[in-house]
């Protein structure tokens, strides 16, 4: 029962996220409203950590698998990509690495400059 209740709470927050997505005229998806709501509910203790943490951590642990079906959908859009696939691949790999290096280096630089260790 415990896990079912936790999953129920997580689905409730996801559902409120969906409602906000429908009602508010912003390009923000349900999952982002949901994560903000869940964070707010945890910090204000409206939802105690123990009420969601077991099911929540399990969902996070298996999250990687959830992307596989959508990624395999590449096979459907391949015809649109084919003509430019080399350029697209180069842009994708280079920009991902550059963004990762810049954001991580800037963060590390500011942390160390502040003399604070994480």
């Amino acid at each position: 029962m415990k896990l079912l209740k936790q999953f129920g709470i997580i689905l409730l927050v996801s559902f409120i996220g969906e409602v906000l997505h429908e009602v508010l005229p912003l390009p923000v998806p349900a999952s982002i409203y949901g994560i903000i709501l869940m964070f707010a509910a945890l910090t204000t203790h409206v939802i105690p950590l123990e009420a969601v943490s077991t099911a929540g951590k399990y969902l996070i642990e298996i999250m990687a698998v959830m992307f596989i079906p959508a990624a395999a959908g590449l096979i459907v859009s391949w015809d649109m990509i084919r003509a430019y696939w080399v350029q697209y691949l180069v842009l994708m790999v280079v920009s991902t690495v550059v963004v990762m290096v810049v954001s991580a280096s800037v963060t590390q630089f500011v942390i160390r400059k502040g003399g604070r260790k994480s």
Binding site: I10, E18, G34, L37, F39, G56, K57, V65, F67
Partner: peptide, 16 residues
């Protein structure tokens, strides 16, 4: 499997 993506994303608030 994709169905669980939104609830899983919502749960990312927990470690945060």
């Amino acid at each position: 499997l994709s169905y669980f993506l939104t609830p899983a994303t919502v749960c990312l608030a927990i470690p945060l």
